[in-house]
Design a protein around this nucleic acid. Structure first.
Length: 746
DNA sequence: CTTAGACATATTTTT
DNA sequence: TATGTCTAAG
């Protein structure tokens, strides 16, 4: 057994797996087999040391990572055993613990979880209550400060005491009220999930003791991304047995702006003087050429503690390519042409390629160029499913069914579908409820049921509010009474969501949105096997914490377009990095601060180390941003990579392909772009033709270029390259992407 | 209370 | 450029 688990591990990996007790810090360079070490270690603990799987707790940052670990453990120790190990994100695990014990903190166990959209809505309400201007005090900015405060375990009172600036004093007032409203709404935001867990451990040693007994072996992934609260949770859990195993890489810390505290990993040895430190430096992912360039970048950084020296047996490989584009169009065109070339030469498939950029705004051009070339692609991110308006609206009803005190949800749908409760009435309702110190739902109940109470609502408003209350309580009655999918069906009918959507949006868009709602309804079918009472809660929780279909489908053979942040943890044979320019990477917003500039450097490092075989670094000398042409200098980071490590390519006679007249509109509206996104993602697997389908002289039609005549056709690498003369010019297309429609002669 | 046009606004986002 | 929010008129 030992042989199996250690067989394919290098020496430091083996040490990491077999050092069973005491604190261990594993510094894992990119591509060094970190997940392997984590999973093999868990398997080793169980199989070799006889540790009870129930005593193992493994914490990750993403659901994806948690799932990956679980799946690999299924293979290593079998599903039955793997099932007994606690694996999850900080937030998911804390939620579970809080559901059990939050009553000890004076809160209800059926709390809802507010996502950033909910937080923002709540903060807007706070600002209005406090008569503050949203322009002067942007809700997001205030929430950012509050989030940082929470992560540092600073409560509203402490924050108010230490407020230095006028702005902070304002924030202090907002923070106080925001927290009151969260409690009143029986809601926790993401930060609260962590903070309340820390409180639980601090204020109730017996509960902490319970978990000391339960979890004897702790593993934490991506330790460099932990914030203060997460650090304290880990420290509390580990303080008795000290069997703490953390994995991380300070060079890949790119979330400081979200509160991640790089000191947690840098000071691990200080926190645990007896810690074993293990460096994983052998890289299994990239070529030496890629590693050399990436390392040159990092070696130029003034901030390095655990400098790693990555090496690989993969060989030198292709030189890293540097391309200086004249502008952003040239840049994406180069990338797309290069992808087409690699495909045509059989050196890559679309699914091998990833295009990475600093800001989401850059994705639009990329998308257009890919559509234009007929290459299947898919954009990671964008509007997440559960963040779509229609979905959130329906979810708001469901959340109210589970917890009518959820004031954000209530406010969200108080006039959706429209029922004559306007802004004015809502404002008055909120103000009135506040003077009575009642949650909105209770205030509504008073209006509906208590004739004696005096309130400012006469005639129409009063009727509308009463009816709304009756609707909510009717729906609330159904909680736990029927299967979730039936409940949703009932709801959709009761408020006629379909008709509402069709009245709000026209044809195609309404179709789209209604389809989304149905998709939501189908997602609920998954819960059919749970007891009826728990289906809704389980559903809502999964939605709150599992955020999105965070599975990037690597099976569909499509080019991946992705931000650098989201690319962390992924790998692709061919990686194209765009916009490596001053102002974009490092981003202009990071320039005033040394630390944030270094974070940008690490971001580039993360991007570069995603590449397995080919890496392209691109920048443009001229870029249009916000409708203005900017001259962009190449990024300072490129100067840190010696010219000997990159090969600069030039293109002669480049000329942007003019957009085909009358077709650009396709990319203009977001709705249409959404459409394109979907179709391209859902494209059927590539056919691999044995013989040519097209022949010279044949008439064909292309979705973008229109009708044309086939000039030439030949088979290449399992595909067919067709040359077609269109109205404007000749184009070479790959049959599998171009989806040419064959027209009959006549 | 809803609707059209003006106007300012503009990273990254594991949960 | 393109988005969301504010303002004035229907």
């Amino acid at each position: 057994m030992t042989g199996d688990l250690l067989a394919n591990l290098n020496e430091p990996q083996q040490r990491a797996v077999t050092t069973v007790t005491g604190p261990v810090l594993v510094l894992a360079g990119p591509g060094s087999g970190k997940t392997r070490v984590l999973t093999h270690r868990i398997a080793y603990l169980i199989a070799e040391t006889g540790i009870d799987p129930l005593q193992i707790l493994a914490v990750t940052f993403t659901n994806k990572a948690a799932r990956e670990i679980r799946e690999r453990l299924n293979l290593l120790v079998g599903e039955t055993v793997a099932h007994e190990i606690t694996i999850g994100t900080f937030h998911a695990i804390c939620t579970r613990w809080l559901r059990r014990d939050i009553v000890h903190l004076g809160r209800e166990r059926d709390f809802v979880i507010y996502d950033s959209d909910d937080q923002e809505r709540l903060m807007k309400r706070v600002l209005r209550e406090l008569n503050l201007n949203e322009k002067q005090y942007p809700p997001r900015a205030i929430l950012g400060v509050i989030s940082r405060a929470k992560n540092e375990l600073v409560d509203p009172e402490a924050f108010a005491r230490t407020a230095r600036s006028y702005f902070d004093e304002i924030v202090a007032r907002c923070y106080t009220r925001y927290q009151q409203l969260l409690i009143e709404s029986n809601a926790l935001d993401f930060d609260d999930l962590l903070v309340e867990t820390v409180r639980l451990f601090q204020e109730h040693p017996a509960i902490l003791h319970h978990y000391h007994q339960r979890y004897r072996f702790l593993l934490v992934d991506e330790y460099q991304d932990t914030n203060r609260a997460q650090y304290l949770i880990v420290r509390a859990l580990a303080e008795r047995d000290r069997n703490l195993f953390v994995v991380g890489d300070e060079a890949q810390s790119i979330y400081a702006w979200r509160g991640a505290d790089i000191r947690n990993i840098l000071q691990f040895e200080h926190d645990y003087p007896d810690a074993r430190v293990i460096l994983l430096e052998q890289n299994y992912r990239s070529t030496q050429a890629i590693l050399d360039a990436a390392q040159a970048l990092m070696h130029a950084s003034p901030q390095r503690k655990y400098a790693k020296n990555l090496w690989t047996v993969n060989g030198k490989g292709e030189a890293v390519t540097l391309y200086e584009a004249s502008d952003e169009e040239d840049e994406v065109q180069f990338v797309v042409d290069e992808i087409l070339r690699l495909i045509a030469e059989g050196k890559a498939r679309p699914g091998d390629c990833a295009i990475m950029y600093r800001t989401n705004a850059q994705s639009r051009l990329v998308e257009e160029a890919l559509i234009h070339a007929g290459v299947p692609y898919y954009v990671v991110g964008g509007v997440r499913f559960y963040e779509r308006k229609e979905i959130k609206d329906v979810l708001a009803y469901l959340r109210l069914i589970a917890n009518p005190y959820d004031s954000v949800s209530l406010q969200r749908i108080i006039n959706w579908p429209g029922r004559g409760i306007g802004e004015r009435t809502v404002a008055e309702l909120i103000a009135w409820a506040r003077t009575l110190g009642l949650p909105l739902y209770q205030a509504l109940r008073e209006i509906a049921d208590n004739d004696a109470i005096s309130h400012p609502f006469g005639g129409r408003a009063r009727t509308a509010l009463t009816e709304f209350y009756r609707l909510l309580s009717e729906l609330h009655q159904l909680h736990g009474m029927m299967a979730l999918s039936d409940l949703i069906d009932y709801l959709l009918n009761r408020i006629d969501v379909r008709a509402t959507l069709y009245s709000e949006y026209d044809g195609d868009e309404a179709d789209d949105r209604w389809r989304n709602v149905q998709e939501l309804r189908n997602a609920a079918l998954k819960y059919v096997n749970l007891p009826v009472e728990t289906q809704l809660t389980a559903f809502l929780e999964e939605i709150a914490l599992v955020a999105d279909v965070d599975a990037i489908d690597r099976n569909s053979d499509t080019v991946t377009c992705i931000t650098l942040h989201q690319a962390k943890g992924l790998e692709f044979p061919c990686v194209f990095l765009l916009g490596i320019e001053e102002g974009l990477l490092p981003h202009s917003r990071s320039l005033d601060n040394r630390d944030s500039i270094e974070e940008e450097r690490r971001l580039l490092y993360v991007g570069m180390t995603r590449a397995q075989r080919r890496l392209y670094l691109c920048h443009a000398t001229k870029r249009t941003m916000f409708g203005r042409v900017n001259i962009g200098a190449r990024s300072r980071f490129l100067n840190d990579i010696p010219p000997t490590l990159v090969q600069q390519v030039h293109r002669r006679g480049y000329r942007a392909i003019p957009a085909v007249a009358g077709t650009t509109w396709q990319f203009r509206t977001s709705g249409q772009s959404e459409q394109n996104r979907r179709t391209s993602r859902n494209q059927a697997p590539l056919p691999t033709p044995q013989k040519a389908v097209f022949f010279p002289g044949q008439r064909v039609r292309h979705a973008t270029f229109g009708e044309g005549i086939v000039v030439d056709s030949r088979l290449i690498e399992g595909d067919e390259e067709v040359t077609v003369r269109f109205a404007d010019r000749e184009r070479r297309l790959l049959a599998s992407f171009a989806r040419l429609e064959q027209l009959r002669d006549g």
